[in-house]
Structure formats: structure tokens, C-alpha cells
């Protein structure tokens, strides 16, 4: 269960203040959506959670410990683009993480160990709807499939914290609705806290347990340099979403199958995951 505590965080690039006095506590298993206008530091904030950038002031604690200063396998990430490796097939992309974790010298495993991993990877690919595409290169997959692949690749590492940087921004609406359903299911079933940057308010409210808006309180041209963005709105979604308990409000009801009794089960997951019950 991963909680994040962000204390009085500042980020400056030279004289330019990007973020100022951001304080935030994120509960374990939360799904936080970060929204706000372009250039207000959402992505910078995400990069600091990832360890790709360091805060100028302030601290980020994960489960009470300071965040390691570089990216690591405890924090997964999916970007809008470049999330999967073009030189590896779908299966190889998903295998890459565990392979590198198991073999620090060659980054490859063989034999029995490999077969176990391949089974696991294939199962995960099937879970995100990519069964049958194992041998395809990312360039042969559609945008939506590439993002599904990126999710599977990240989930192989069982990250405690999943960071999403406008992951579905480039997809068209139909595909986006499908992948939202997938994202909701994955959040219910995998024991992770999610932080997602998005431009799309509808997406934020459709997925998150909490929507946080970043904005610049002082935004006159002469103020823009010295005053950064901070949290201007912090909205808890009601009715509350709880990880591992799908509510009827969020049930993905396929057209023509709206028999509500089918969804009136307490735990709406398709398979039990240890620790997934909040």
C-alpha cells in the first residue's frame, strides 16, 4: 500500500518558478488525476514523482521514506508516446523488465525460467486485450494497442506507484473509452496507487478517486516568471471510488447487457489479487 506525502514542494528552472508550495498527501491505492492548463507544471510534478527530476525545495516521501533520486522499478510510467521499445516485439517488450531484473549481466533469461516468464507475460498481454499480438512490433500496432502494451509492460514489474503522463491523449474517443474501462479494471485488480496527468476533464472524473487542479494564482505577464503554479482545487469524487470494489456507477456496461443485477456484486473484479481489497 503506497502512500505519498509531498511537503512544500518547489521547482525552479533558473529564475523561472514552475511550481510553488505544493503540499499534498495521497492515500494508498488512490487514483489521482492532475489537471490544469498547459505549462502549469503537471508533467514536471509527475517527473519529480518519477525521480527523473529533483525538487528545488521540499520533499517527497513514499510510505514515509524519501523518494530515491532516480527512476526505479517501484514506480512505473506510461507516456503518451515512446513508452514501448520499437525494436522489441510485444512479448519481448513485456518480458524486458523481469528479464533485466533476473539477469544483471545479459538482461536475458533462458530455459525454464524464461518459460515461466513467457507464460506470465502472455497472460498479462491477454488481460490487456493483446492476445495474438505477441509477435508484432509496436510499429505494427495501433495507437491504442501500443498504450495497452505499455500498461502491460509496466504492470509486469508490479509497481507500487503507476505514473501516467497523458497516456490516452492521442487516442480517438471510441478507443479511449475502451482503454478507460481497461484502466479502471487494472486499477481495481493491481495493488498500486495511480497518478495520472491529463488534459481531459471528463477522463479525470471518469477514472480518478480524486482530481487535483494545478494553476497559477498570479498570472499577469510580469508575474509569470516569479510565481509558479500550485494546487488550486482538490476534489474528491463522489460517490467515492474504492480500489477493488467496483460500484455500479463505474460498471462498464456493454450496450444491450444492462441487467443491473449482474453488477450488484460486492467485489466486481474478474479475479482476486492478494492485497487488492482495500
Amino acid at each position: 500500500m503506497t502512500a505519498l506525502t509531498i511537503q512544500n514542494l518547489w521547482k525552479e528552472y533558473g529564475d523561472q518558478v514552475v511550481l510553488e508550495s505544493v503540499s499534498l498527501t495521497i492515500a494508498p491505492r488512490a487514483f489521482v488525476a492532475l489537471v490544469g492548463p498547459s505549462g502549469c507544471g503537471k508533467t514536471t510534478f509527475l517527473r519529480m514523482l518519477l525521480g527523473q527530476e529533483r525538487p528545488t525545495r521540499g520533499s517527497i516521501l513514499m510510505d514515509g521514506d524519501p523518494l530515491p533520486p532516480e527512476p526505479g522499478p517501484d514506480r512505473g510510467v506510461v507516456y503518451q508516446r515512446y513508452s514501448v521499445f520499437p525494436h522489441l516485439t510485444a512479448l519481448q517488450n513485456v518480458l524486458l523488465g523481469p528479464e533485466m531484473q533476473a539477469s544483471r549481466l545479459t538482461g536475458r533469461v533462458w530455459g525454464m525460467k524464461r518459460r515461466v516468464l513467457v507464460d506470465k507475460a502472455a497472460a498479462l498481454l491477454a488481460e490487456v486485450g493483446l492476445a495474438g499480438a505477441e509477435g508484432k512490433y509496436p510499429a505494427q500496432l495501433s495507437g491504442g494497442m501500443q498504450q495497452r502494451l505499455a500498461l502491460a509492460q509496466t504492470l509486469m514489474m508490479r509497481p507500487k506507484l503507476l505514473l501516467l503522463d497523458e497516456p490516452f491523449g492521442a487516442l480517438d474517443p471510441g478507443i479511449r473509452a475502451e482503454i478507460h474501462a481497461l484502466m479502471r479494471r487494472l486499477w481495481h485488480e493491481h495493488a498500486m496507487t495511480v497518478v495520472m496527468v491529463t488534459h481531459d476533464l471528463r477522463e479525470a472524473f471518469a477514472l480518478a478517486t480524486r482530481v487535483i487542479a494545478f494553476d497559477r494564482p498570479r498570472n499577469r505577464p510580469e508575474e509569470r516568471m516569479r510565481y509558479g503554479a500550485t494546487i488550486t482545487n482538490d476534489i474528491a469524487i463522489w460517490p467515492p471510488r474504492v480500489a477493488g470494489r467496483q460500484t455500479i456507477y463505474d460498471a462498464d456496461i456493454p450496450a444491450g447487457q444492462d441487467d443491473l443485477s449482474r453488477f450488484a456484486i460486492h467485489s466486481g473484479t474478474t479475479r482476486p489479487v492478494a492485497g487488492a481489497q482495500a
Partner: peptide, 11 residues
């Protein structure tokens, strides 16, 4: 992004 992604995959 690819390098950071690899780092999150324990490279």
C-alpha cells in the same frame, strides 16, 4: 522517455 522507461523496468 525510453531511457527513463528502461530505468523503471530495473535496467
Amino acid at each position: 522517455e525510453q531511457i527513463v522507461k528502461a530505468e523503471t523496468l530495473s535496467a
